[in-house]
């Protein structure tokens, strides 16, 4: 049965909705529309004239072999960040959910990284991984491993993946922990009496019962990896060395703000938007089927 809230005043509901609608219009619809408009125009270098060019920006972008490389980096980066952030968060949540001393302190500490600004977090990572001054970076070099993310693209990619995942682990952790705590203890006990060991209990009871949380976090984390990791990458590697850590979102910035190719950058934005919308739709269409909502 659905409950219906009614208002006496006919204007009040619209008034209450207005702030949300205004925010969506100003910060999403308008820029998105702008991006679409610009993606089919070509502007001169001084921004004085622009010319309607149909889909020339798109064909140009998609025809650029560099763009495919960026796409590959983005796919690797996003999959790695999502899997790592969710896997580590789930592991930590399971550990924090068990009866341990100081569980409250652990839980609080695990949430802290989420409160850090991406740039601040990136500076912390530089302090750790910098080959000259970073504790871990220096250690690796002392062990004879040639660690320098400023020169080695693979190492740089590993580092931005680590840093971006680390930021998202806290967020995922909160949700996983809440999800775990919502599973009745007696259900786990019943499974134990039925003969399931801890590992089997996790995969046959805990994990399926967590599926609504897992699905929600999957969607959120994919969007995070695509869009919200710009700050981390910008502060750590600026997309380098070469283009080894240049993701789609970073390239949008690079081409638009640094290289002043507004049309091409807008076309990329639109492509990126389409990719994320498609991914989310796919997730809802195919993954959600396996989700059990109680």
């Amino acid at each position: 049965m659905q409950r219906r809230v009614t208002f006496d005043n006919r204007l009040l509901p619209y008034l209450l909705l207005a702030p949300q609608v205004a925010v969506t219009l100003v910060f999403f619809i308008w820029p998105a529309a702008n991006a679409i408009w610009q993606s089919v125009h070509l502007q001169d270098a001084f921004g004085l004239r622009s010319e309607f060019v149909w889909f020339e920006n798109f064909t140009h972008v998609l025809g650029d072999p560099n763009y495919l490389d960026t796409l590959k980096v983005t796919v690797v980066f996003s999959i790695a960040v999502t899997v790592l952030a969710m896997g580590v968060a789930l592991l930590l949540a399971v550990l924090a959910d068990s009866k341990i001393k100081g569980a409250r302190a652990y839980k609080t500490l695990l949430i802290w990284p989420y409160a850090l600004a991406p740039a601040v977090a990136a500076v912390l990572w530089i302090f750790i991984f910098n080959p000259d001054i970073g504790s871990f970076g220096k250690g690796l070099r002392a062990l004879g491993y040639d660690w320098d993310y400023r020169l080695n693209g693979g190492q740089a990619l590993v580092m931005v993946i680590l840093a971006a995942s680390w930021k998202q682990v806290s967020y995922n952790f909160i949700f996983f922990l809440a999800g775990l705590q919502a599973i009745p203890r007696s259900v786990m006990e019943a499974a134990g009496i039925d003969g399931a060991g801890p590992v089997r209990r996790f995969w046959t009871i805990t994990f399926p019962l967590l599926s609504p949380t897992t699905f929600f976090l999957l969607v959120v984390d994919v969007v995070y990896a695509f869009f919200e990791t710009f700050g981390t990458i910008h502060a750590l590697t600026q997309g380098g060395p070469g283009k080894a850590t240049e993701t789609l979102i970073f390239r949008v910035y690079q081409d638009g703000v640094v290289n002043n190719d507004l049309g091409g950058s807008s076309a990329q934005s639109v492509i990126l938007m389409v990719i994320v919308i498609a991914l989310t739709a796919v997730q809802f269409r195919f993954v959600e089927r396996k989700v059990h909502y109680s």
Binding site: P184, S186, V187, E189, A190, A191, P208, S294
Partner: peptide, 8 residues
């Protein structure tokens, strides 16, 4: 008491 059935 609360049956503890596996809901899924």
């Amino acid at each position: 008491q609360n049956y503890a059935l596996y809901p899924h």
